[in-house]
Simulated assay, not measured.
Amino acid sequence: MIDRCVRPIIKKRLKIDTNKESRSIALPLASSPGLTDLIEDSRPTVTVLLLKMFSSGKVVKLYYDVASPYSWLAFEVLFRYRSIWNIDLKLKPAYLGGVIHGSGNMPPGFIPNKIQYMASDLKLLSEYFEVPMVKSSKPYESDSLVPMRFVTAVAEQDKEGDLLERVSRELWKRMWCTHQDITQPASLIEVGLNAGLSTNEVEEILTLAKSQPIKDKLKSVTKEALEFKGRSGWGLGLPISQPQYDHYSSILCRF
């Protein structure tokens, strides 16, 4: 089961590293002389910004929650192409439930047409981007607050970002590929161990995740994501990707 969740991602990375392809879906909200080669694709829409830049140091902030399958798609595509697009990717763990509530939006589960569309949409997108999502026989009903506090604690401990990338991916694989729990301490311990942490390090992060500073940090980043509400209709869900340019701003969102 784990092989099925890992192999497609590795395969896609090797393809990109070998052929230097850079093709995705773009949704610019403004033009910029520093941004080139925006390509619109007629395939089903995952909101991913195509960036091909010739200057260095451009920062892209990705606000995400592991409860969002579209966040996983954006996450993998941005990591896949970041060296080609020459971007500095900053991960910003946020709480999807807080963004949906704060924006006045409704979860897909409350809108039958949306949940039906998502099933077919995610099947096509997972095949196109080779991100290994497997349809579950029952809808996911658990809240992501506990795992996102865990991810936020990892982010506070991991200043380089490599561990945060691995932990986030392990959580997405459990939720959207193997359909395992991600809310219980035993599940988070398994996630941490699979991501390369020691047992002591995982226990330390679990304790940190329950602390008030981590709770406040997650609230703060979620509030940042909500500040995008009203900018061309974005900020209603996750992921949100915010490229930072001198004369360019683009807010991308899908959940």
Score class of each variant (00 low, 15 high):
Arg169Thr: 15
Val167Ser: 01
Thr152Met: 11
Gly192His: 05
Glu204Asn: 13
Gly161Met: 03
Leu197Ile: 09
Leu163Gln: 15
Trp172Ser: 00
Asn194Ala: 14
Glu156Phe: 11
Ser142Val: 09
Val146Ile: 14
Thr183Asn: 03
Trp172Ile: 01
Trp172Thr: 05
Ser187Asn: 09
Asp162Cys: 13
Thr183Gly: 05
Met175Ile: 11
Pro185Trp: 10
Val154Cys: 02
Ala195Pro: 02
Glu201His: 03
Glu170Ser: 00
Ser198Glu: 07
Lys159Ala: 14
Glu190Cys: 03
Glu201Asp: 12
Arg166Glu: 15
Leu164Gln: 15
Val202Asn: 04
Gly192Cys: 08
Cys177Pro: 03
Leu193Gln: 08
Leu171Ala: 11
Arg166Val: 12
Asp158His: 07
Ser144Ala: 02
Glu160Cys: 12
Asn200Met: 13
Thr152His: 04
Ser144Lys: 07
Thr199Asp: 12
Pro139Ser: 02
Leu164Ile: 06
Glu201Phe: 06
Val167Thr: 01
Val167Lys: 00
Glu141Asn: 08
Ser137His: 10
Ala153Trp: 00
Leu188Glu: 00
Leu145Phe: 08
Arg166Tyr: 11
Val154Leu: 07
Glu141Thr: 13
Phe150Met: 04
Phe150Tyr: 03
Arg149Asn: 05
Glu203Cys: 13
Glu156Asp: 11
Asp143Ala: 13
Glu203Gly: 14
Gly192Tyr: 06
Ser187Thr: 05
His179Phe: 14
Arg166Gln: 14
Leu171Val: 07
Ala195Tyr: 07
Glu201Arg: 05
Asn194Cys: 10
Thr152Asn: 06
Gln180Ala: 15
Asp162Trp: 12
Ser168His: 01
Cys177His: 06
Asn200Phe: 12
Phe150Leu: 02
Leu188Met: 09
Ile189His: 10
Cys177Ala: 13
Arg169Phe: 15
Glu204Cys: 09
Pro185Phe: 10
Leu171Glu: 04
Glu201Tyr: 06
Glu156Cys: 10
Leu171Lys: 01
Gly196Cys: 03
Val146Lys: 08
Val202Ser: 02
Thr178Ala: 10
Asp181Val: 04
Ser187Leu: 05
Ser168Lys: 06
Leu197Ala: 04
Val154Phe: 01
Asp143Thr: 10
Leu208Gly: 04
Glu204Ile: 09
Val154Trp: 02
Lys159Leu: 14
Val151Tyr: 11
Ser137Val: 09
Asp181Ser: 08
Leu193Cys: 07
Gly161Val: 05
Asn194Val: 06
Ala155Phe: 07
Thr152Val: 07
Asn200Asp: 15
Gly192Pro: 00
Thr199Val: 13
Leu171Pro: 02
Ser168Met: 06
Leu206Pro: 06
Leu145Pro: 00
Ser142Gln: 12
Ser144Gly: 03
Gly196Lys: 01
Ala153His: 05
Leu208Ile: 08
Lys173Arg: 12
Asn194Asp: 12
Asn194Pro: 04
Gln180Leu: 15
Leu206Tyr: 09
Ser187Gly: 03
Pro139Asn: 06
Val151Ile: 15
Glu141Ile: 12
Thr178Lys: 08
Glu204Met: 13
Ser142Ala: 14
